[in-house]
Design a protein around this nucleic acid. Sequence first.
DNA 1: CTATTTTCAGACATCACAGTCTGAAATTGG
DNA 2: CCAATTTCAGACTGTGATGTCTGAAAATAG
Lengths: 145, 145
Amino acid sequence: MGLLSKSTEYALRAVLYVASRKDAKYVSIREISDELGVSFHFLTKILQRLTRKGLVVSYRGPGGGVALARPAGRITLMDIVEAVEESDLFTSCILGLAGCGEKKPCPLHGQWARERTGLGKMFRQTTIAKLAGHVVRDKLRLADG
Amino acid sequence: MGLLSKSTEYALRAVLYVASRKDAKYVSIREISDELGVSFHFLTKILQRLTRKGLVVSYRGPGGGVALARPAGRITLMDIVEAVEESDLFTSCILGLAGCGEKKPCPLHGQWARERTGLGKMFRQTTIAKLAGHVVRDKLRLADG
DNA sequence: CTATTTTCAGACATCACAGTCTGAAATTGG
DNA sequence: CCAATTTCAGACTGTGATGTCTGAAAATAG
Ligand code: FES
Ligand code: FES
């Protein structure tokens, strides 16, 4: 099992792609799906979700597409993950028990809570701007190959 | 998405339960499923996998059940996870790209690789004995409620 | 206005994981 | 031997995530 769902993976890659094309006003979903090598229709549904959540704005018709709703420096990985994934990764018990907390911990609670906090920090502190800049400067990939 | 699959969660809980019943020779799957509150048949399939992988030994007939194949101090969480999960969590790209490594990193590689290493250490260094001891001494739960 | 482009919306299909069920094989106790 | 107990094996079903398809709605260009 991967850490993130396919939907979240695609969402992150798509947003990073849009952010790395700072010059463009709107980027069409068709262009994104072609560049990332993922299904157009599936990506459309995912981006619609980001649109409804207010992370990206969209525009229909020729020259339309999607754009970030606010500066990439104010969008974190956690924003995206929370928008598309209904995951309790950062709050739930690693053994799947009901209610994770200090009151009734499972035997793994201590160690998992520490790792989870580290992961949460990474997702909350890393912005799209930082990663997109990395993509542009170092020509990092957002697709296979 | 949780970090572990249901199968892995059940496997860990079952092994911890067996380890925390040091006095017993064999623990029946029925007893385990009752205590953990999970499906008997489903748990059976999971424990059969652990048996085939050589992590537990089983015995049929009255008084039969499963037991750890070696001292709990020499079974790590990673042993269990690798036995039941065909997960690449500790080797694959967090964006799902083909081939994760320094040669062709994705923009998240650096940060994810660090977190992943921490997680891997936790799973490799934590033994069943340590956690089961914790369960017995502090009466920690392995089931809901 | 008309044709084209593009997102929006939702139905439908596919697939892997989770869970259920039935019966066979092994072991024990009487 | 016989009956009860328990694991082993595999077929079957349910469910949610993934992926595909068709058409409507909005915007642009001519
Ligand atoms: S109770 Fe299990 S991780 Fe917190
Ligand atoms: S290439 Fe993406 S995490 Fe290593």
